[in-house]
Amino acid sequence: MTVGVVLTSTSTVPGIDTTVELAKEAQEAGLRSAWFAQTFGYDAASLAAIVGREAPGLQVGTSAIPVFGRHPLLVSSQAQTAQAATHGRFHLGLALGTKHLTEDGFGIPYERPIARLREFLTALRPLVATGSADFHGELLTATTPLPAKVPGADPPVPLLVAAMGPQALRVTGELADGTLPLLAGPRAIAEHIVPVITAAAAAAGRPAPRIVAFVPGVVTADAEAVRETATEAFAFYERIPSYQRVIELSGATRAADLAVIGDEETVAAEVRRYREAGATEVVFTATGLGGEADRHRTWKLLGELAR
């Protein structure tokens, strides 16, 4: 099973040179993938392309670029450029985003998100595959009067969606290659995510979808203190309806309850639980949990599990 790490999150964004060094360290530890959050600062796809060039043993991906405020033609250009730069190791993660960030940040209404996701993926799929599109929907139009295929952008960029609700999962299973759930524990993955997305993919004649579980976690000797930090760090998600739902479906009451915190044996056991629940890949995100010594311990363990 592939095991990876998030190198930039919405709360932790080191400089580019530092990020590259962290990626090289992750690769040396045996980790297989590095992921980058989209913020209002760095462009996640560009950062993934840079890191993928500097650390050629890593798969790289975005987790995740909101579809609101973007257009399939422009996202396709970004994704194909990153794919060509990394020689086929780029994974495009998309998201619905949130009402708050969409309306306050872009000044556009957060309306019909599932319909927008469906149209976005429908237009994007042929763009990354062939460089052409002729899509005219209710919410989006994407046509290519000029060629839009980037040389070397092969194989076609995998499309993943941070989908956790049933409607988003059905669209993702039908039109994308997998999902990127965050704060979805093994119970929610096994009972609510895998069945819905797998059925949708099968009905559409698509391969079994990837389930890339993003898991907050760290190996540490001071689990109690780190748990307190996690409670503060993840409280933001408890105000977002989609996360409220998946936290509850996971059998938890707070987001921090889903953080994997403890010694090597504890963390390894939890990673196995995600795999048994149906996760095809596990990606750890520390989000400021623990110190440097904890990060080294965590990456060492994850590298061993990846082997």
Score class of each variant (00 low, 15 high):
V194P: 03
L47Y: 02
D104A: 13
A203D: 15
G57C: 07
V5W: 07
L74C: 04
D43K: 03
V212P: 03
L140K: 10
P72M: 08
I247W: 05
H136P: 02
L96F: 07
T172A: 04
F135K: 13
I65W: 05
V226C: 11
L305G: 00
I16W: 05
G61R: 05
F214T: 11
A37Q: 09
P241W: 01
T12C: 11
R254A: 15
V13E: 13
Q83A: 15
P147E: 11
A277S: 11
E238L: 05
D222F: 09
E224I: 02
V283M: 10
P66I: 12
I247E: 14
G41P: 00
S77P: 00
Q59P: 00
R118Y: 07
T198R: 10
R70I: 02
L47E: 00
R239P: 01
R307T: 10
T144E: 03
A201E: 10
L22R: 15
A208I: 06
R116D: 05
S77T: 12
V218I: 15
G178Y: 01
A163T: 06
V6Q: 13
I189F: 03
P126L: 14
G137I: 07
A79T: 09
Y243A: 07
A44Q: 02
A176T: 00
T18F: 05
A84P: 08
H87C: 10
V212I: 15
D154T: 04
A268E: 04
V60R: 12
G290F: 07
F90T: 09
T179G: 05
P14Q: 04
H71Q: 14
G15W: 01
E224R: 14
D154N: 07
R70P: 09
S63W: 08
L31T: 01
S11L: 12
A202Q: 13
A49H: 03
D43R: 09
F214R: 14
Q27R: 07
T287I: 14
E54W: 04
A286W: 11
E304R: 15
A223F: 01
F234H: 04
